[in-house]
Design a protein around this nucleic acid. Sequence first.
DNA 1: TGCAACCGATTGCAAAATGCAATCAGATGA
DNA 2: TCATCTGATTGCATTTTGCAATCGGTTGCA
Lengths: 173, 173
Amino acid sequence: MPLDRRSGCPINLSLEVFGDRWSLIILRDIIFGGRRHFRELLNGSMEGIASNILADRLKRLMELGMLTKADDPSHKQKAIYSLTEMAIALVPILAHLGAWGRVWLPTREELSIRAELLERGGPPMWEKFMDELRHEHLGTPLDAASGPSVRATLQAAYEAVVAEKARSASPAA
Amino acid sequence: MPLDRRSGCPINLSLEVFGDRWSLIILRDIIFGGRRHFRELLNGSMEGIASNILADRLKRLMELGMLTKADDPSHKQKAIYSLTEMAIALVPILAHLGAWGRVWLPTREELSIRAELLERGGPPMWEKFMDELRHEHLGTPLDAASGPSVRATLQAAYEAVVAEKARSASPAA
DNA sequence: TGCAACCGATTGCAAAATGCAATCAGATGA
DNA sequence: TCATCTGATTGCATTTTGCAATCGGTTGCA
């Protein structure tokens, strides 16, 4: 897309941000996977992003104001990527996107259980998750006595499905 | 992205559907702009899609089950593209996407007024709109006495902003 | 009947984006 | 010392995109 023909339509501008194959995958891994480092994103993503594309997209997402980069105090070469409020605000979109994909596309059960839980949790759960992300990435205070984190809840559900599938695949051991 | 490394993650699969620059723009023009023909989509979109890309994406969206094509009885060469339920189900995502873009990106006021109204209308308005789209594209019956259509409401708001801007730009006439 | 305008595409070609493997220089831990 | 790990970068082949021209057929009008 040539830069001289952008329209000011919100949907079009949104597509300029993540209307490509990788930007939203990276944000997904940071948000739901809790990944903060280059290598974690490079090796951790199921889809196998190339390192030059990852570097390019991280740079682009920083320029767009969706991510910030900081030195990791424990390792002079490590960089920690953090979400901005702009990126955290994508959580409802990701929740809807996951819900839509779960219904209409051939998703795998263990990978769609998180989308299902997030959909069932609805806006209250999204808000809680966003608050946890703000705490994790922006250092804002967190409400006390809020129970297990949303990410831990989603992760536990994922692992339960994986375990159940393994059990039913080989019932006797 | 090579086809042999797709993951069954709902977000990843969703991105395979509209993780590109144009697919969602086309759907936007059909949904909000009411466009049904090739030429309408070609000339009507603000972003100026190329005809080969448009043809390719229409074909792809049909293969994915998001669109269907039918002959226009009034013109032997005209084709009418219709949304499927799968595509109509994107309305909440488009609403969220518009709302997000309106807040975080440099949208133009007259183009973002629709997103604002759609956000304010919330899920009830989205449902009404989806029902109207089902009527328009799938031929399902429509609830009577439902007032002006959502699309007409959004269009009227857009035109009001345009008129207001023109008035304030040249107050004396 | 002739003919310009319109219909949904398709073609050829240049430019840009992507995928992939190899590699970089500096930091770390043994 | 030296293998390993850090966030990237480079070169190159492949794929996708942008763009203008064009295609065969249809339509409305004179």
